[in-house]
Amino acid sequence: MSGVASRLAAATPGGIARELEAPVPGRRRRGIRIRGLGLPIYTALALIFLLIPIAYTFVFSFNDSGKLNIAWQGFTLDKWTNVCSAQGVCEAFANSILVGVVATVLATALGTAIAIALVRYRFRARGAISLLLFLPMATPEVVLGAGLAAQFLSLGVNKGLMTIIIAHTMFCISFVVVTVKARVASLDPALEEAGRDLYGSAVAVFWRITFPLLLPGIAAAALLSFALSFDDFIITNFNSGAVDTFPKFIYIAAARGIPAEANVVASAVFILAIVLVVVAQVTRAARARRTARLQR
């Protein structure tokens, strides 16, 4: 009887409507599958879009080209074995390394001291200084570069490597302060107090307790500063004079065709960065496994 009743109920208009409105399991699974593919497809397209210029640079570093490195002429390793054969490539790269290292050291030292002072001490104009340190990060590089160029011109300073280093140190300090400041704020002051309770001097407490705890943040700030300095073009172009850095060399050479040797340098820098990241991740994972093993 129950089966007959159910068939009769299904035969009614309301039953037929309910059956029509009921979702089909196969259709639901297909809809979920299609929606689930959206994110992977979007991610793959984004990665392809980001990696196309890098792939182009790497592939054309093996191009057997002359002055123009636009059309593929054939495979060769001569550009990798004779990187400095193109005039100005190695000199510009060396200038970028020099400027990046010096600006990073100066900005990291000054920025770390400023970050510690802003977090640990109370003094007048503390809030104003924090605000002023954020301004170079929010100001367009064109404004910073033009302003610094005007200052150097009014002071009668000849533009060259020194003015580039000063300019890069100025805008890198803000990034160092922001990065190290977050690390300083996360430290437990009780650790330093324990060091002073054990009759450690202020210098000993800083180098044996504070500095090792701040070192990850300082290293991150230094790497960020070097990357920003090495990659900068706008501020450098305003304050470099006749000195060429690698980004400036690329910009000037783009008008007549970037030589394959510049692609070699760019590819080598990219590969080095990837290797450093992989080594850092592997080292961190090994340290984490070692720590977990000791805690057992």
Rank of each mutant, 00 (worst) to 15 (best):
Q151C: 13
I271A: 15
L294G: 02
E193F: 05
A182C: 02
A202E: 14
A185R: 11
N95G: 09
L187V: 13
D232S: 09
R35W: 12
Q151E: 02
R28W: 10
L106R: 02
N69L: 03
V83A: 04
I252M: 09
A194S: 15
G195R: 05
T139S: 08
A190E: 11
G160C: 04
A103D: 05
R122Q: 13
L191C: 05
R256T: 15
P216Y: 08
G38S: 09
V279K: 00
S96I: 12
K248R: 15
E91K: 12
V269L: 15
E19Y: 12
V269Q: 02
A204P: 01
Y251I: 00
L198C: 13
L155H: 10
M1T: 15
A280V: 13
T81D: 00
I165W: 01
L228R: 11
T283H: 06
A109D: 00
R296N: 10
R287V: 10
V205P: 00
L20P: 00
I252G: 03
G14R: 14
V99Q: 02
V177I: 10
I41N: 01
A204I: 04
V105H: 01
V265G: 02
L223K: 04
R296C: 03
F270G: 04
F62T: 13
F49L: 15
A17N: 03
F75Q: 02
A115G: 08
A266W: 01
V142M: 07
V177L: 06
A286T: 11
F134C: 11
I173T: 09
S186H: 07
V142G: 11
A138F: 09
A255I: 10
E19H: 12
A125V: 12
P23I: 02
G147C: 09
V178I: 15
R183L: 01
I16L: 13
V279I: 14
A55K: 00
E193V: 13
K79E: 11
